[in-house]
Structures are given as C-alpha cells and as structure tokens.
C-alpha cells in the first residue's frame, strides 16, 4: 500500500515538470512583452531592453527554464513580473480561499447531489424523478455568472439575507459555493441516478430484498456502494475542474482566489506566477486523484485485494 502511494507521488513529479514546460513554452510563443506591459505603452525602447536584461528575459529558452526549475526545486518560485513580490506569497495568500471555496462547493455537490440521485433512481418516473431531472438540466445549462448574479439580486438585495461580495465570513461563502457546485451537482445527480438504476436491477439486490432486508439498508449499503465507483471518479475529476474553473465565480463575487490571479498573470504575461498557479492546481488535482484511487480500495473489496499483501 505504501509502495503504491509513494510510487504515485513520485510519478507526479514528471507531470508537474511537464506542466511547467508547457506553460513556459506557450507564454514564450504568445506575442506580448512583460517588460513593455510593466513600463507602459509609451516607454522608450532602450528602457524596455534594459528591463528585459534585468529580468533575464533575453537568455536562451532552456537556460531560463532550467534556472526556473532549479529555483522551484529549492522552494524559490521567483518573483512576479508585475509587482516583484515572491510568487510563493502571492499564491500562498490566495490558495486557502480557493481551496475553501472548492471544498465547500464539492461537499455541497456531493451531499446534495448523491442523495437526490439515489432518491431519483428509487422513485423512478414519479414527480420527484421529473423534478430532479429538470432541475439537473437547468443547473447544467445555466451559466455560472448568471446564476451568481441572480442569487446576489435575490438573496442579497431583495431579501437582504446574505452578503453580496467578498470573503469576510462563512456567510460570504454560501452563495459562491452554491454557484460553483451547481454544474457538478447536476452531473452527480444524473450519474448517481443512472448507476443506481443499473445496480437496482441486479440479482443480488433482488436476493437481499427476498431475504427481507431493511429497505434503507439495501439501498444505501448494498446498492449505493456498488454504484459509487463511477461517481467517485467523477468527483475526483470535477474537483480539478472546479479548482481552475472558479474564475468566473471569483469575478462575480469579488473573491481573491487563484483563478483571478491566473487570468491577471496571463494578461500581464507574468510567467512565474502563471507557472506556479497552474502547477499548484495540477499538484492538488493529482493528489485528489490519488485519494480517490485509495478510496476505491475502501469501497470495493475486490480492488482492495489487489493491494493488500498476502491476499494473493
């Protein structure tokens, strides 16, 4: 088990370097000069050249990349081109906010989406099923910014229940988390529903019912556990998507998170910040995938047997 985990962790290192390499290359090939963007449209060419020299932008591509990786390995992620602050500070100050938002969103999606999916499957073709299917359709189709703005309009302005923008208290996170969770919630509802429907039809469920088992126990312990595998995969994948995709939510609710930092870095051609942010997201995404894989072991004894020693 430990061997497996450490192998997975080691495998992440080339992935991260690869991500950094891709970002570096893309930033290099896109037009636009960070020095010119710092000094403004009317700066003299000599000043721009001098600043480029100072920033080390005139070196060969591989030299620059090598210097960056060398620094990153020792914990020095360089300084932001835009405001000269250490990148680790910039990312570090926003990471907790983004993580909080993503975790809350994911928790909402899981704890509302999965039970509703189960309910929908068990009560197939009733009004509950129809309502949830339409709700899921709406949640997927509604653009995040529209949902967010409508929520602010309704809950913040009309009803005066919740604060509109910012991150000062837990209350501030309610609407952004719901908006963020919306799309994933819909996917989870439908996925859970379809896997549950499949599982409910299986022979072993009929056997359990025939044996006279408690209805709730059958649904949640026997059926759901079997249906959970694809759903958990979805949760893992969507976590990565949510981490990076919160940009719109952050703009709508004025939340200082990683998404806003990323977009700002792209616009200012701030390569150090961009690489650090994207690599950070890749790292977290990779860790979540690893956790999901480990969760499989606990859910499905068949998979567990492959990893536990001495069971062959």
């Amino acid at each position: 088990m430990f061997k497996y985990i450490s192998k997975r962790l080691l495998m992440m290192i080339p992935v991260l370097i690869g991500v950094a390499f891709i970002i570096f290359t893309i930033m290099d090939f896109t037009p636009g000069d960070p020095a010119r963007l710092i000094l403004g449209e009317y700066a003299a060419q000599e000043d721009i050249d001098a600043l480029r020299e100072e920033m080390g932008l005139n070196e060969n591509f591989f030299v620059r990349f090598g210097t960056y990786v060398k620094g990153a390995v020792t914990g020095d992620f360089g300084k932001s081109y835009r405001n000269n602050l250490p990148v680790s500070n910039e990312v570090g100050s926003r990471l907790p906010t983004t993580l909080k938002l993503t975790f809350l969103g994911m928790t909402l999606a899981v704890f509302i989406g999965i039970p509703i999916g189960v309910l929908s499957a068990v009560k197939q073709y009733t009004i509950i099923d129809n309502v949830t299917l339409i709700a899921a359709l709406l949640l997927t189709s509604i653009p995040g910014f529209w949902l967010g703005l409508m929520m602010i309009l309704f809950f913040s302005l009309r009803l005066d229940l919740l604060p509109a923008t910012g991150i000062d208290s837990m209350k501030h996170f309610i609407m952004p988390s719901i908006t963020l969770a919306a799309g994933t919630m819909a996917t989870l509802i439908r996925m859970t529903r379809s896997t549950m429907l499949e599982v409910i039809r299986q022979d072993y469920i009929r056997t359990a019912k025939a044996k006279g088992g408690n209805e709730k126990r059958i649904i949640f312990i026997h059926a759901l556990r079997n249906a959970l595998l694809p759903v958990i995969t979805l949760v893992g994948v969507n976590f990565g998507i949510l981490l990076g995709g919160a940009v719109v939510i952050e703009a709508v609710f004025a939340i200082p998170g990683l998404g806003t930092l990323m977009i700002g870095a792209v616009r200012a051609k701030d390569t150090p910040v961009l690489i650090a942010t994207v690599t950070c997201i890749a790292l977290i995404g990779g860790l979540i995938t690893l956790i999901v894989d480990i969760l499989y072991i606990f859910i499905d004894p068949r998979i567990k047997s492959q990893y536990v020693k001495g069971s062959r």
Binding site: L149, I152, L157, P163, A164, T165, A251, V252, A254
Partner: peptide
C-alpha cells in the same frame, strides 16, 4: 478590488 462591473453596481445597491 472588484473587477466585474455588474457585481460592483450590485454591491453599491446593497450598501456594501
């Protein structure tokens, strides 16, 4: 810091 103009007007109306 609020980059989105619509959000800014909403927060003005809300009084934040």
């Amino acid at each position: 810091i609020m980059s989105d103009n619509t959000t800014a007007v909403l927060s003005l109306e809300k009084g934040e």
